[in-house]
Design a protein around this nucleic acid. Structure first.
Length: 888
RNA sequence: GCCUUUGUAGCAGAAUCGGUAUAUGCAUCUGUUUCAAAAACAGAAGUUUGAAGGUUCAAGUCCUUCCAGAGGCACCA
């Protein structure tokens, strides 16, 4: 596509004009960007200091997985976070803006199998390229001294140490449980890593349920706190809080116990959120996996029940959920006694009841539960109404009535409102030893074992005598072997075949034992990396409490919404657990969260606008773009095209538009400098000495500073409007410069014509001192407010304007500009005159008019007069400095 | 089914408290410049705010219902 080849390198061979034009007037990002990146690194201006008089600001972006290549879609999040960091630095904060690598994980192993390259080598090479060839070229302001890589032993050793602490506290436990197995990854997965019954890595692969003995972290110990503290996270998007709330899934109800008629010592517990419907129970259902099924089934029913259980076992979870219209089931032959009314009802087994929620058993109340209604209708079980909308029993039930109402057919509870009866009946059950109040959670413990090689080894030894024994703290790190490992993808983790790794003495008794070969879920690595950033080089501790208490919590976290549950929930849990272990003091890790939207682009494969990704064939590479238009243009476009939390469609034309804008900034400022129309400004502009055009422009500058400051305020971050304001200022600068140029050209008579027809800026010697000052103020302010968003061009122009005098000077070390409030408001406003809410006229008026003066102004207006003539006025509304509305 | 969220010129998006509907960019058109084009500079045009009701002197903004898109949870008892 030759038409796309435009850009700074584009030259027409016959263009002689290009040759004669001064070099300074050409904006060439490739001449300045790498130069400044190297310089910033040399003078170390982005280092964070662990002690400082300045207020701290911890700016964090979700660290990347080193997959090898970042594209423009990835760059959005780094740009947003970088602008925030840079601006906070200019506001006088001690900013921590670190970067690292989430470097353990399956893709490295898969790549190893494919290219027969060791995961470590693959990962390290990717990191080097992504760091030096991509992130640095974007112009990010990271403190690379604090770089953290989770697959380095000096990091994962502390991951193991934290595991031991969790183990000590009883927060890491081994238990046998049904777990999700991904046949593609050949490993188990956490619940959070299963989406719609499929592995989150490949949606086409269904996970299988297996019963295995595995390591879990007891995140459920923190269910209540994780839920309750969501309310304190005012700086989080509502949507993310809701998603976590749904995931934790608290439901309050009761556990009721039904005694088996033929075996009085056996009880079936059910969980219900509606104990008020207990008089309507017409059967009790067990999940097919419930061990009570085998225990209670009568000989006559045994064959039917076994066949049914076997049938459901073969169904996938998806198939089990698919049957919404029909509900299969088989009676097991015996009955339970309803403790409330003494009624004897049958026990069934049915696959609409799930073993892994509640107690794996449910009381069937067909009249007041949709699923039970379908089940009872199908299997001809009685339907007893116990709650009525109006207290009148006997209505024909065509479907389940699931709302609250008034109790009927419920003995001593009749007539009560059902929501009140809920508590009373729970109390009754507790008093009669057949139930209790109970809270049920959806959240389950975090399964962290992975049967994979490229992860953090779990620091345990299996001993025949002592069982499973944690290694001593002095043995840490348990190093993941790199040499002599052969990764084939066959027959499980290579660790299981590596004798030198496997053989280890029992830490307790010293006899030969065998090391645990499972590694940890990589989400463990990322659950505490933000703590390590606070103290990345500590060789004695995971992090010092002093440093963590200084920097934490993170003031602004930026990342993708795909981690709304997974990473963010795990990190919150880790923070609380570390707090209880005594390692730190805060309750929540991330005070403010910005979830940036994804970057999309038309995919030539599907023909639709989709998330930018390699597999969809719609990626825009970083380096092609940087070379052609510069990182500053890329940054501005991603900030400008949409608000940060919204989706952003990448557009080549739009991005070039930003390049054009920066070209405008470059041309006007370099020309002003060439013409000596700007000076090193060190005194304020004297507003009163300016002419009308000057006054207007001076006000525009103050308005711009105010508006950009407001848009970039903490928690607001509306970069698109901030850039729009900068554009307005540039447009204003062109206009003002043009007026000054026209004036001096008129004065000089003919001077203008010939080759000066493209002149943008006036000559300095044709201007008054105030005008030069005003232009200088405009240039200085524009560069300062633009600096966080376009760091390279602003630094170069800052230097050309003479503000860099010694090493260490940088626009990024400068102070964010202030503004004079009085100069942000206009003296004259346009007063809108309405009759009956319809606009009749707009007239200029002085600001701050008294209400009666404004009203008189409106009444005297000819157009208004014509409208209201002969009518009686019912009411006049005056909104000061806005409008007058006459109601007739 | 439940919850969250979005709907404004051709496109992306602005619009404190309800108070002149659209800043800014892309695209389009015109002029200057040019042999011509591009670039640059200057200028113009365009919607009645997804739909219907309601509250109000006044609604893009508040309320109700509906329609459409995006995301989350879901046989959760």
């Amino acid at each position: 596509m030759p038409s796309c080849q435009r850009g700074p390198n584009w030259r027409q061979p016959s263009s002689h004009k290009e040759v004669t034009r001064s070099m300074a007037s050409q904006y060439n990002p490739q001449d300045i960007e790498e130069k400044w990146q190297a310089h910033w690194e040399k003078i170390g201006i982005y280092r964070a200091h662990d002690d400082s008089d300045k207020p701290k600001f911890y700016s964090l972006v979700m660290f990347p997985y080193p997959s090898g290549d970042l594209h423009m879609g990835h760059m959005r999040v780094y740009t947003i976070s970088d602008v925030i960091s840079r601006r906070m630095r200019m506001l006088g904060h001690n900013v921590l803006n670190p970067m690292g690598w989430d470097a353990f994980g399956l893709p490295a192993e898969n790549a190893a199998i494919k290219h027969s390259l060791h995961p470590q080598k693959w990962t390290k090479e990717n990191i080097r390229f992504m760091r030096d060839g991509q992130l640095k070229k974007l112009g990010t302001s990271y403190d690379w001294e604090r770089e953290v890589t989770t697959c380095d032993a000096n990091y994962y050793g502390w991951t193991q140490w934290l595991f031991l602490k969790f183990f000590e506290k009883g927060l890491a436990v081994r238990k046998e449980a049904p777990v999700n197995w991904c046949p593609e990854c050949c490993t188990v997965l956490a619940n959070e890593q299963v989406e719609d019954g499929a592995c989150w890595r490949h949606p086409e692969t269904r996970v299988e349920q297996k019963k295995m003995s595995q390591w879990f972290l007891k995140i459920t110990n923190y269910s209540e706190e994780l839920l309750a503290d969501l309310d304190t996270l005012k700086g989080w998007p509502e949507s993310v809080r809701t998603m976590q709330q749904n995931w934790i899934g608290k439901s309050v109800g009761a556990e009721l116990r039904f005694t088996v008629e033929s075996k009085p010592n056996v009880q079936i517990s059910v969980f219900t959120t509606r104990p008020d419907t207990a008089f309507g129970v017409s059967y009790v259902v067990l999940a097919p996996e419930n061990p009570l099924v085998e225990e209670l089934t009568t000989p006559e029913q045994r064959d039917a029940v076994r066949a049914y259980v076997e049938k459901t076992r073969l169904k996938s979870e998806l198939e089990r959920m698919a049957t919404e219209k029909t509900k299969s089931g088989v009676p097991i032959g015996c009955q339970v006694i309803n403790p409330f009314n003494g009624e004897v009802v049958p026990i069934w087994v049915a696959d609409y009841v799930l073993m892994n929620y509640g107690t794996g058993a449910v009381m069937g109340v067909p009249a007041h539960d949709e699923r039970d209604f379908i089940f009872a209708t199908q299997h001809k079980l009685p339907i007893t109404e116990v709650i009525s909308p109006n207290g009148e029993p006997g209505a024909e039930l065509k479907e389940a009535f699931t709302e609250h109402g008034v109790m009927v057919n419920s003995g001593e509870f009749n007539g009560l409102k059902s929501d009140i009866a809920k508590d009373k009946m729970t109390d009754w059950a507790a008093d009669h030893a057949c139930g209790a109040k109970r809270v049920q959670w959806r959240l389950r413990d975090w399964l962290i074992s992975r049967q994979r090689y490229w992860g953090c080894p779990i620091p345990l030894v299996h001993c025949d005598d002592c069982g499973i024994v944690p290694v001593g703290e002095d043995e840490i790190p348990i190093v993941l072997p790199v040499e002599g490992i052969e990764i084939t993808g066959q027959g499980g983790s290579p660790l299981t075949k590596m004798e030198s790794f496997l053989n280890a003495p029992c830490p307790k008794c010293g006899k030969p034992g065998r090391r645990e070969t499972d590694t940890m879920d990589t989400f463990i690595d990322s659950s505490w990396y933000f703590l390590r950033y606070c103290d990345p080089k500590n060789k004695k501790e995971a992090f010092s409490k002093k440093n963590v208490d200084y920097w934490m919590p993170v003031d602004q976290y930026v990342g993708g919404v795909e981690h709304a549950i997974l990473h963010l929930l795990y990190s919150r849990f880790f923070t609380k657990a570390c707090r209880d272990i005594g390692l730190l003091s805060c309750d929540e890790p991330f005070t403010n969260l910005l979830s940036q939207g994804m970057v999309t682009k038309l995919s030539s494969i599907s023909g639709r606008i989709e998330k930018m990704s390699k597999s969809r064939g719609n990626v825009v590479g970083t380096n092609d773009f940087f070379k052609r238009y510069g990182a500053d243009s890329a940054r501005l476009f991603t900030l400008f095209a949409a608000p940060p939390e919204q989706e952003l469609e990448w557009s080549e034309e739009g991005a070039i538009g930003q390049y054009r804008f920066l070209g405008r900034v470059w041309r006007i400022i370099t020309e002003l400098i060439d013409n000596q129309a700007v000076v090193d400004l060190n005194e304020p502009v004297d507003h009163d000495k300016l002419d009308a055009a000057g006054k207007n422009f001076h006000k525009l500058i103050h308005k711009t500073i105010k508006a950009v400051s407001h848009d970039l305020e903490r928690g607001r971050f509306i970069f698109n409007t901030a850039i729009a304001r900068c554009m307005e200022l540039v447009n204003g600068l062109y206009k003002y410069a043009q007026e000054l140029t026209a004036r001096s050209n008129n004065g000089n008579g003919k001077a203008a014509k010939s080759q000066e027809s493209t002149t943008l800026a006036p000559q300095g010697d044709a201007l008054s001192k105030e005008e030069v000052q005003l232009l200088s103020f405009a240039v200085k302010s524009l560069l300062l407010v633009l600096a966080p968003m376009a760091p390279h061009i602003t630094e170069e122009l800052w230097k050309l304007s003479g503000y860099i005098k010694k090493e260490g000077d940088s626009i990024h070390n400068s102070t964010w500009p202030g503004f004079i409030e009085a100069l942000t408001v206009d003296d004259e406003i346009e007063l809108v005159l309405q009759v009956n809410g319809k606009i009749v006229n707009k007239v200029p008026a002085a600001r701050g008019l008294q209400k009666d003066v404004a009203e008189k102004l409106a009444m005297d207006d000819d157009k208004v007069k014509a409208k209201i003539e002969g009518q009686s006025i019912r009411k006049v509304i005056v909104v000061p400095d806005k409008l007058v509305n006459i109601v007739i």
